[in-house]
């Protein structure tokens, strides 16, 4: 069994060495594709985490109508806290709000207090902002709701764009690398027509003839995946160093290189195997010369 595996692997490696330029093209394109997909995927994961941290800072202000009693205020507080996506709701009495305004702009002290009672609402999930807003607005005795909708929308749009960019550019490169792997395998079949012919002459099984080519595609995928992992690691390290220099503190968490090697290497193996399988589905048969 080991003898057999050794023979098939040797065949695959020989084929790659024989057609190294095409193999290099396939590996490097797949590496760039996985770098973009994996790298942008990592950036999105980090941004999601950052957005969750930021959601506490996206404060919502709920203004009540004039003349709301304390009993009604505590009812409204309970209603707001019951809404999904709300982390915290704090009552801000109209007098306290007015004092703060006077501290900020003392000249307004000559006027009457225009503020109604209000609530400061902190969101647990930034993406639920619009939903929370409409539910609070629907409550009786709520006059208006203010929050940083534009900022929240910007964050969402940015993440959507990055997701789109990763999917589109990465997808395009994945297709390109798939075609390159397919071509590399087809070219190797042509380059190794003598070996294929001899195998057919002596009655080698179809799997013995085809498996080395599929292994070759899987090897190319594996190398592409590993290269992409190392590229992402290097890019992350470079960004971390830059941020550290600016912020004087460790700005980014440690990059999970082991996980990246397993995930991207595995993805490369599956993808390379699939492309080479498609390539050997076309007849590899040559004239036997008899």
């Amino acid at each position: 069994m080991l003898d057999r595996i050794e023979f098939l692997l040797t065949e695959a490696i020989t084929a790659m060495r024989r057609n190294w330029l095409m193999s290099f093209a396939a590996i490097s394109t797949l590496a760039v594709a996985l770098f973009l997909l994996g790298g942008l995927g990592y950036v999105l994961i980090r941004m999601n985490a950052a957005a969750e941290d930021l959601s506490g800072r996206f404060e919502m202000r709920v203004w009540l109508r004039d003349g709301v009693s304390k009993q009604q205020i505590s009812e409204i507080a309970a209603d707001i806290r019951a809404i999904k996506g709300v982390k915290e709701a704090r009552w801000v009495p109209r007098d306290i709000e007015w004092k703060r305004q006077i501290e900020l702009t003392p000249e307004v002290a000559y006027f009457d207090n225009p503020f109604p009672d209000s609530f400061k609402v902190i969101l647990a999930d930034i993406s639920l902002g619009p939903e929370v807003e409409s539910k609070i607005k629907a409550l009786p005795r709520v006059d208006a709701v203010e929050y940083l909708r534009a900022e929240q929308q910007f964050m969402e749009q940015l993440m959507n764009f990055l997701q789109w960019l990763a999917t589109f550019v990465g997808g395009l490169l994945i297709v390109t690398s798939g075609i390159l792997i397919y071509n590399a395998i087809r070219m190797n079949i042509l380059a190794r027509w003598r070996e294929v012919r001899i195998m057919e002459l002596v009655g080698a099984s179809r799997s013995t003839i085809r498996i080395p080519f599929i292994l070759e595609g899987m090897l190319q995928g594996l190398l592409g995946g590993f290269t992409a992992s190392l590229l992402i690691f290097a890019a992350q390290q470079a960004v971390a160093e830059q941020l550290k220099a600016v912020l004087m503190t460790a700005a980014l968490p440690r990059f999970p290189i082991e996980l990246a090697l397993v995930v991207l290497g595995g993805a490369g193996v599956v993808f390379g195997g699939f492309c080479s399988f498609l390539a050997v589905r076309e007849p590899v048969r040559r004239r036997m010369g008899v």
């Binding site: 057919e200 002459l201 009655g203 099984s205 179809r206 036997m288 010369g289 008899v290």
Partner: peptide, 13 residues
């Protein structure tokens, strides 16, 4: 392939 293992083939080239 099994059939071909029952014979020896000597091509011209």
């Amino acid at each position: 392939p099994a059939l071909r293992r029952e014979m020896g083939i000597v091509p011209q080239d």
